[in-house]
Amino acid sequence: MSLSTVPPAAVPAAAPKPRRKARFGSGKHDYVRAGLWIALLFAVFIWTIPLIFMIFTSLKSEADIFGTPAFVPPWNPEWGNYVSALDRGNLLNAGANSLIIAVFKVPIGLLISAAAAFALARLKFRRQRLLMGVIAMGAMVPIQVAIAPLFQVIMGLNLLSTHVGVILPYIAFGLPYQTFIMYGFFRAIPVEIDESARMDGAGNWRLFLQIILPLSLPALAALFILDFVATWNEYSIALALLQSQDSWTIPLAIQGFQSQFTSSYGPLNAFTIMSVFPVLIVYLMFQRYFVEGAFAGAVKG
């Protein structure tokens, strides 16, 4: 999509009047900047309240939760909540399920999407743009539109409550967005590269695996991270397809814990914290990919 070709704003070309005004206004500028900084600090404080609230509660004993205001720090941290959460909710089992699903879904899904994007962006056949459009449209339709019949399909395949039974639909529902992003990325690679590779006798597969894919590593990395997080967090498909408690993923386990132990606020918050921990670590380690991923989606898309 031609979003990177932003027409320059119509600004009359100004005669160069070097620096006079900038220096004049700098005192006022600092003042504004300090005010802005304080406003942002305040906003960030508001923004982190839910997280602070959750962490505090997870470390309080029941007596402290009911006896002290919620934003008073837990002076006597009660780590037992974490033990209790691990004990009562099947966090480890759910974590293992989520991990297995993500470990298979993410690379396979990316490879399939990349292959499709390669065909759509680098090979030539009729109606390929239309096909790209039809695939991209899948990224915009809510999953819930197809979820009841999807349940029937998976039941027909006898795959309810299995890893494969969610990995397959996850791959399918991830395809449209990933293919779309890859398509944009592949199209930005100069055609001359293909031409010279073909001159050297490379076929389509070699072109794809040895040239186009390695050139797209930044986009692949960004999509990998984003997709890992999205898979880890997915709830509605899992809710429909994973019926037995043994097969639950993390989001189902959170919801299960919350409906089973409604008023165990300490363990519940400890459970939630532990469940978001892997994603937070991934986020903090690969932060720049999130920005790049958004950037790729927004500008290259």
């Binding site: 923004w47 989001p251 939630t272």
Partner: peptide
């Protein structure tokens, strides 16, 4: 910090806010 909520599972967010 402003972006962090975007990576959390919505179901986890729901539980935090419910509390």
């Amino acid at each position: 910090l402003f972006y962090i909520p975007g990576v959390l599972a919505p179901i986890a967010i729901a539980n935090m806010w419910r509390w």
